[in-house]
Write a protein that binds this DNA or RNA. Structure first.
Lengths: 342, 342
DNA sequence: TTGAAAGCGGTACCAA
DNA sequence: TTGGTACCGCTTTCAA
C-alpha cells in the first residue's frame, strides 16, 4: 500500500523542484525538451497520476457533477438518463457522483450535502417530492437542475417533458385510425405527469368533439397490475372501448395481458397504446405502439446545462421542454381491424 | 454566483482566525462555549459547508469510492447493486462516483483514470471483458474489486456468484417434482456465468443418473428472443421436455410466451424455471419460479470490502462467493400436473 | 482559550 | 531555462 507518487516524488528522482516537474508534464514552453523527456519517463515508470482534487482546489474548479435519483431501475428511466449523463460528462473530463435516495427525504438531503461538500460543480436532481426546499437549502450556491416527474412546473432550472403533448399525439394517432371511443387508463397521480397526460387527453378529445373517458386503476408502485385491473373493471362494466391509451408501457403490457386472457385480440378487438418507450424490447413478438420520450437527449442536455452553469456563461438554457414522439408498432390498428396474430 | 463561504469568511465576521473557527465547528475542547455558539450561528446563517476535498487532501483520506459498469439497466442487475452500494456508502459518509463504460474498453479505462485522479479510495468494477489488464494499469495502487459475469474466477479481489450451485438447485427442485427429462436453455456464452450454469447442470443431472440436455439459442443481447427461439427449435424437433431451466428470467419469460402461443400450459404441460429473480415483478399473473442471486448483499459486501481496503485493515475478505437460493412460484409443478390458469 | 506556522498536492507569478 | 514563493481550504501541532 505504498503512497501514490506526487510531483515532489518525481522531482526528487529527477533532481528538480516539483514546480519544474509540473511544468514539464504539462508541456510548458519554458522547459527544455531534454528535461521534459526525462521527467515524463520517470512519471511513466512511477505510474504517476495527478491529484485532480488538489489541482481543482487551487484552480477553484470542479471536476465532478452530482446526480440524485429516487432509485435506479425499478421501472424508472433514470438508468437510461444516467448512461447518457455519464458519457456526456466523461467527454468533458467530468466524473459523476450518483446517489440513490431510496425515496427518502433524509437520504436525499444527505446526498446533497455530501456531494456539495465534495465540491460537485452542479447537481442534477430527480426529487422524490415536489417540495424541494430541503434540497435548495442543502445545496446553497451550488446550482441544481431538476428533472423527473415530481418537478414543479414553475421551477426555474428544470428539464421537463411535455406530457400534454403526449395526450394530443395519442388522440391524433388513434382518431387517425378511426377510433372515437378511447379510454385513458391512468393510476393514482403521485406525479404531476399523470395529471398532464390527463389534461392533454381531455383537451385533444374535446377539441375533436369526442367524449374523453378516463379510468384510474391502481398506483405507480405496480402499473402493470394497474393495467390489468383497469381492463378487468372496464370489462365488468361492459364499457370496453375500441382503443386504450395507457399512461405507461408497463400498464399497456398489463392491459394487453388482461385482454388476451379474456380471448380478445390486440389490435383486432382493442388497440392499445403505451407511454415512455422503455420496455417494448421485452416483447419481441408484440410491438407496442407507444410515445417515445427523449431520455437520452434529456441526459445530454442536463450535462450541457450543468457545464453552462459551472462556467457561469450567461446563455444557459435554464428551462427546456422535451417533446414526445409517436412510435407506431403493431398494437394499434384501424377500428374493426383484422384479428392480430397475438 | 457568490463564492462559497470558507472558514476564513466566518473568521472575519466573527473576529477570529480560521483556525479557531475550524475548532469551534468541530467542538474542540479548547474553545469556549460562548465562542462556539457565536461561530456556529454565523456558519448557519452563511450556509457554510466544509470543503471536504480540502479536508481530505490534508488528511490523506478519501471520501469517495468509484464504481464502473458496462451499462445501467439494459437487463443487467447493476441498478439493483448500485442502489445498495449507494446506501451503504452514504451510511459511511462516502459518495459514489459511477461510470457507464457503454461496453467500450476505452471508456472503461478512461473512467478508471478519471476516478483515480479524483482520489477515489477504491473502485468496484464490472468489467466488459475478462482481460482486465488495462484496468489494473489505469488504477495503479488504488484497490479494485471485481464483480459481474466477466470476472476471471482466479481474480484475487472479487465478489462472485456460485452459478454451479444454481445448476444443482435447479435440478434438485425439478427432480423433486418428478421431472427426469429436463432441458437447460442457454445462449452464446459471452460470460463465464453461462458455462458455470452448464457445468453445474450437467454435474447435477449425471449425479442423479439422468441425461443432461442443453440447447444454446441466441445471444445475450436479447435473451427473451433466445428463449422463444429455443422453445421453437425444441418443438420443431419434437424434443420438448417436461421441464425447462432457462439461464435468465428474460429467457424464461420468452420461453413461456412461446409455449403459450402454441397452446401449451405452464406448468401443466411444461414447467419453466428462470435465473436471477429480477423481472418476475413484470408478470403479476404468472409467478416465475427462479433462482435468486443476492445482489443487494453483494452490493453491501462490495462497500464493506472497499472500506476495509481503504483502511488497510488486514482482515478484508478479498474473495467472496454468494450463493443462489430457490424461489418457488407458480411456473413449476409436478410432472403431469394439472393445467395452470396461465 | 486562542492563533501562528506548517503541510496536504497541485498551479501561477516572478525573480534568478 | 529553472526554481522560490505564495496560495487554494482545511487540520494538526505547538507556542503565546
Amino acid at each position: 500500500m505504498e503512497k501514490r507518487p506526487t510531483l515532489k516524488t518525481i522531482g526528487q528522482l529527477a533532481g528538480l523542484s516539483h514546480v519544474a516537474v509540473s511544468k514539464a508534464l504539462r508541456d510548458a514552453p519554458d522547459i527544455s525538451e531534454a528535461t521534459k523527456a526525462r521527467v515524463k519517463k520517470i512519471a511513466e515508470e512511477l505510474g504517476y497520476t495527478p491529484n485532480l482534487t488538489a489541482r481543482n482546489l487551487y484552480l477553484q474548479r470542479s471536476g465532478t457533477i452530482g446526480m440524485i435519483v429516487p432509485a435506479m431501475g425499478d421501472s424508472t428511466a433514470y438508468d437510461l438518463i444516467f448512461n447518457e449523463v455519464s458519457a456526456a460528462a466523461a467527454a468533458r473530463d467530468f466524473c459523476v457522483m450518483l446517489g440513490s435516495s431510496h425515496r427518502s427525504l433524509q437520504l436525499e438531503e444527505r446526498h446533497c450535502r455530501m456531494m456539495v461538500g465534495n465540491q460537485v460543480g452542479a447537481l442534477i436532481v430527480a426529487s422524490c417530492t415536489s417540495d424541494v426546499s430541503h434540497i435548495k437549502a442543502a445545496c446553497g450556491s451550488t446550482p441544481v437542475i431538476f428533472i423527473g416527474g415530481k418537478t414543479d412546473p414553475g421551477e426555474s432550472r428544470a428539464l421537463l417533458c411535455d406530457y400534454r403533448r403526449s395526450g394530443e399525439l395519442a388522440v391524433e394517432h388513434l382518431t387517425g385510425l378511426g377510433h372515437r371511443d378511447i379510454v385513458l387508463l391512468t393510476y393514482e397521480p403521485e406525479n404531476l405527469t399523470i395529471l398532464q397526460k390527463e389534461e392533454g387527453f381531455v383537451q385533444a378529445m374535446e377539441g375533436r368533439g369526442l367524449v374523453p373517458r378516463m379510468l384510474r386503476a391502481g398506483s405507480a408502485a405496480n402499473t402493470m397490475r394497474a393495467g390489468m385491473d383497469g381492463v378487468e373493471r372496464l370489462l365488468e362494466r361492459g364499457e370496453l372501448p375500441t382503443a386504450l391509451w395507457c399512461a405507461s408501457d408497463y400498464m399497456a403490457i398489463g392491459a394487453m395481458n388482461a385482454l388476451r386472457l379474456r380471448g380478445l385480440s390486440v389490435p383486432g378487438d382493442v388497440s392499445v397504446m403505451g407511454h415512455d418507450d422503455l420496455y417494448f424490447g421485452l416483447y419481441p413478438n408484440i410491438g407496442l405502439t407507444t410515445l417515445h420520450t427523449p431520455m437520452a437527449e434529456l441526459g445530454q442536455a442536463a450535462v450541457q446545462l450543468a457545464m453552462d452553469l459551472i462556467e457561469g456563461s450567461g446563455q444557459a438554457q435554464l428551462r427546456q421542454v422535451f417533446q414526445p414522439s409517436l412510435v407506431a408498432r403493431g398494437s394499434t390498428g384501424p377500428v374493426n381491424g383484422a384479428p392480430s396474430h397475438g
